[in-house]
Design a protein around this nucleic acid. Structure first.
Lengths: 229, 229, 229, 229
DNA sequence: AATGAATGAGGGTTCATTCAT
DNA sequence: AATGAATGAACCCTCATTCAT
């Protein structure tokens, strides 16, 4: 029925292990596999998108064969979704950041934005998840909603709380802007999109841009005397 | 399921033309075709991405067959790129907007941002081009760079010019923010990404967000007395 | 994306047609295709069973490629079922045979059995459908039931009617056997199974066996006084 | 769905043995294994056919893993053939039945047919072997021939002998039917095929059908004077 | 110009078989 | 002896592309 060559054309994972003298038991290997595969899947899907990625590409990245991938994930589609969940889960939880803010409202807003920036726009993994959310979101809205619920909404809610507090204490002015404090975070989106679109071809200093934006939103561009009603 | 009949169940383009009494000559038809195809391609590619879109999907949208598509475009890949160029070209040219700005620097900045917002984040076509830039940009960096060159860079350059002018005239303060006036436009990215990710599932008032952001960047969030050094 | 060799390695159907000077228009070809494919599918499925048959085998038999098969049938499974229905439909309808029986009950029973034999056990196509019914029937009971309903049941019902009539008229004896006249047809099953199992390796004279069986069962059924020479 | 846990959810063979306090040594186990595997293989192959059965299905039925199957049988194909031989061997040997027939020719014929019926058409295992002979016989004619040689031919030969004897003694009439006494057994085929095709969806009383057939063929074969009531 | 039947390379998925543990 | 992770050859089905009509 099926021919069985058994003659490996290229050295496989085990050969490699022997050659480099690594000691990984089968059990260890197996326990690691799902994680490894999800990581490799992340790289491939992020680089090429769902449809253009071949399961074999993912396998090859790990020096295994596609059959092995199917030992751990039943379909490409499930693999994608698990990968998305896995990559999301390993992102920094915004609540920890929110929990350790100290100082004046302005300080806390500044720190929250900077920390969020570091965890999102400045984090390759999170950026690529944004890419996938944009690219595949139409196909899998649930996925994106879930991510929004867990990561974006809490941060924006924290901003809203901080602004409300600052307005109440008189530290911040009460105005149009105070009604939609989401906009405080807009530069994070800008940096993220910039990275996604232009990568290293037109690099920007994300941190500088963030600080400029924070300066702007806190102080405004107009001279004191020119301040608009 | 593939039909095997070959009997068209719905009236095709010629039937339609006959019914409504239009007179479109063959020559006219031919002249229109590339444009029609590019439009249909835009819709399909935007909805499903490059790899997941079938040439036949595009043809079906026009009630023609895939063979016809190949009369005008040699490959799917070329079609995609031409579509991208075409959709970009039909976007509003930023230079026209820049040209008709009037009033104080603040006014002109505000107007430029609002006009750009209307032409980009609030324009479905431009938004979908952003989606494609993010999704397929890795594969076709040239495409994205070109788009950046023609649409994004000029707008940001205009902003920079306006800010410099305002600083020189004393209308705007000279500070961190003035060094990277790009950030003034960050809310446009935010609205665009929000639309792309959450579509109509979590709608936002883009215009209100824009105005809040403009208010913020012009006036700052801090009370006058609290202004940071 | 996809390489396009276009270099045919072996002459295909069209080459063949040109070479032998056949004149078959595309439209004619297309109209014939489903029928051709069903016939080829019949041969392959009958020879190897559902699971062991490759769609490509079916295509190759027609000097076309598997892609073409999928132009007419959406899946292998549907192809199998349509093939089964098609092959069944083209079998002789028992009602026509039943309609033209003449003579005494004995004569009509004899003729019905012989005709049924010719149409079933002695007909390769019907025999192979029996093979498929036995081999794949567990998977597709509906298919077998349908076939039973249309072909087997009517014939057995006709036998029952004939026997009842003969008993009533006094031509046939009333006894155990008259209660289950199905057994009159048992030799048809025997010949069919023999063919399916031993093919041409241990050939039998089906017709002679049929006649011997008829002789046996008729002389048993008939009253003493009616006994045939 | 493939499980990735490796944690057995149901108790395996050893657990079972421990629980019920059985003491089966490794050696005993090993001696039993081939037999167990062949039995499990019989069930699976009979239910799904050769190609559609997975080696793992067979193993799972025994709560062992496919690796173990390969310890005892080198390939799936060999396993199938050994299973077929094994299942055949465990069928009742016709010679024993033939040996203990007593009474008149008519009695012996009747008894032989009834015993054969019980051992074949009315025996699930033998019936399923018939199914496999029909389904896979084209692929493995040797197998079927062997089975024919050992089980079918002897029974038919015995029938022939009995009929010849009856004719010689004057108990049976000498006529067409006497030339091919095979037909006496045709109802066995009929019942077997009926079971295989219609299973329990259209049940029949096999024994009644057999007796009706015997009644039919005996009263036909017997001389006028010998006719049974 | 338009069609759509046909092609065939490819990618998802399965499963017989191997072999280190 | 038994396991089950891994392999890789197939097989189903899709779809970009071609080309005769």
């Amino acid at each position: 029925m099926r021919a069985t060559t058994g003659v490996p054309t290229r050295e496989n994972q085990w050969d490699v292990m022997k050659r480099v003298g690594k000691k990984t038991s089968r059990a260890e290997r197996k326990a690691l596999r799902p994680h490894e595969i999800l990581e490799a899947a992340f790289e491939e899907f992020a680089a090429k998108g769902y449809a253009a990625t071949r399961v074999e590409d993912i396998a090859t990245r790990l020096r295994i064969t596609k059959g092995t991938v199917y030992l751990y994930f039943p379909t490409k589609d499930v693999l994608f979704q698990e990968m998305f969940r896995h990559a999301s889960t390993s992102s920094a939880d915004p609540s920890t950041a929110i929990g350790c803010l100290r100082g004046s409202c302005a300080d806390r807003i500044r720190d929250l934005l900077l920390i969020t920036y570091e965890n999102t726009a400045n984090d390759r993994r999170t950026r690529e998840l944004l890419r996938l959310s944009v690219a595949e979101g139409t196909r899998l809205p649930k996925m994106v909603d879930c991510r929004h619920e867990l990561f974006i909404a809490p941060t924006l809610a924290a901003l809203t709380t901080l602004v409300e507090e600052g307005v109440k204490s008189g530290e911040l002015r009460q105005d149009t802007a105070a009604d939609t404090p989401d906009v405080l975070a807009s530069s994070i989106f800008q940096v993220a999109v910039w990275h996604l679109m232009l990568a290293d071809r037109r690099p920007i200093d994300g941190r500088a841009l963030m600080e400029a934006h924070i300066d702007l939103v806190m102080n405004g561009l107009l001279r004191r005397s020119e301040r608009m009603a």
